[in-house]
Amino acid sequence: MAEITIIEAVNLAMARALENNPDVVVFGEDVGVNGGVFRATDGLQQRYGANRVLDTPLAEALIAGMAIGMAAEGLRPVAEIQFMGFIYPTIEQMICHATRLRNRTRGRITCPMVLRAPYGGGIHAPEHHSESTEAIFAHMPGLRVVIPSSPLRAYGLLLAAIQDPDPVVFLEPKRIYRMMKQEVPDDGEALPLDVCFQLRDGTDVTLVTWGAMIHETLQAADQLEAEGISCDVIDVATIKPLDMATILNSVAKTGRCVIVHEAARTCGVGAEIAAQLAEYGLLSLFAPVQRVTGYDTIMPMFKLENDYMPSTERIITAVKKTLEEA
């Protein structure tokens, strides 16, 4: 079996969903003939037709609103927003409607839609093409927020998102779209949408992260290993709802926790994890929880983006700080 990248796994999952379920419809800006600006939908229009894989007019509120309408009629819309920086016009549709259809109608009308968008920095892109604002969506009750970080998880989680009966925002870490390859069996198997992935077992400290930061975090864990420090590494992946049990179990073992995310620090998803550690895991902790995050600045343009995003060195420093406490 050939090894594929994350972006190819995203494509494979959509193809599988289109193949298996006639209700699946894929649409967004430039997703048709062009196959998406990152090629996520490459070849899908040729294979599944322009009725099921469509270019929309340039209008993000429209894209989200149409997805809600289609979902309410029982279709399984998979809508693409070209970059997360252009997702903001969808917020009204998502918070006022996607999240509420089920609640508002006491279950009569539901909203099984997926809103996909590439997100995150590190590809030397222009202004607005690099931010990580998953926390905005994580704050919306009734929504799921999912971020894959490997080809296998991209395939399984996207299928799960498409099959899920509720709205899912599916954010793809574009910096690692083509960074790694894995064998991904096209078996149509979905992954669970509410468990974290334990990437590495360790005893001294728990590293919690998601998205492209998996890469720096694993690098830090490797370097620390060489110094005799053993890290548990958790890929949260399902940002909302959050699987705190896995994180709490790990911290019960290690007593230390470092949370790593690319997004700005204040009110980032890391703040929620730290708060729950304070609520439910405080007695396991030997040291204060550390966060290694983007800063509370506008995501700088690319000349300074590496100074903004958490580096392996910053993660290592934070780990060592937690180990300074007895």
């Binding site: 920086g85 252009f86 903001y88 222009p126 202004e127 607005h128 343009m301 690319f302 000349k303 983006e305």
Partner: peptide, 25 residues
């Protein structure tokens, strides 16, 4: 600006104009 530097939007000889708008419309 296209080199990834905010100083490319300071337009020091142009006090009135907005910088290039990327989020369409």
């Amino acid at each position: 600006y296209w080199g990834g530097d905010e100083r490319g939007m300071a337009y020091h000889a142009q006090p009135h104009d907005k910088a290039i708008t990327v989020p369409i419309a």
